[in-house]
Amino acid sequence: MNIKDEHMDWEKEASHLASLSRSTPYSVPDYYFDDLQARINQSVFVAGLMQKEKQGFAVPQNYFENLSEQIESKIAVENIKLLVKEEGFKTPVNYFEKLNTAILDQTINASSKTKTISLWRSDLAKYAAAACFVIATATGLYFNQKSSVLPALTADMASEQMLYDIDESVIIEHLQENENLNTSLASDTEIENYILENYSARDLSNNL
């Protein structure tokens, strides 16, 4: 079916309409089409620039995948807020007025009071306390070590002094006696016989 045939269908039924001129009765400003092409080219150029500019922006990964869910959630929250206007929680009477005053007392109004600086809260006090503890511990350890060495040293010095004070002959004799005591364990009878043989009665009476 060509255009003529297509038109014939309705031209028979709408003869009045078919008799009218089919030119469009609208007009355009003078010389409008002369520069339309140039203006379209400008629009294309600007659109290209805008597209390039948009390419500089980025969105977080999977942003658009979750966007619809986020929007739906937000709408749902807003709907809930509309349905349930109050949360149901209550505060004591004049709570917020008192809260306001309490906060102001602790903040702005507190600055006019005498300022108390806690010594223990300052860093300097902490470091000083730590230094004192270290010094005290070190001193204690030092003296403790020294006191365990001192008795042994004193005993040695006393022994040396005693040895210095005793006559050499007494020491030699004592050692010889000990030696004899160790080498021969004589019975009392043998000792008696030995004394009787080697010492006279006079010697014995003088010594005993």
Binding site: T24, Y26, V44
Partner: peptide, 30 residues
């Protein structure tokens, strides 16, 4: 351009609206 202009003009009637739409149409075409 003129065919597209008149097509749009018959739909939206106003010349200034048509002018905007002709440009937007050809930007999309590009």
């Amino acid at each position: 351009q003129q065919k597209i202009y008149w097509h749009i003009r018959r739909i939206v009637i106003d010349h200034d609206d048509t002018d905007d739409l002709v440009q937007e149409t050809f930007v999309k075409v590009w």
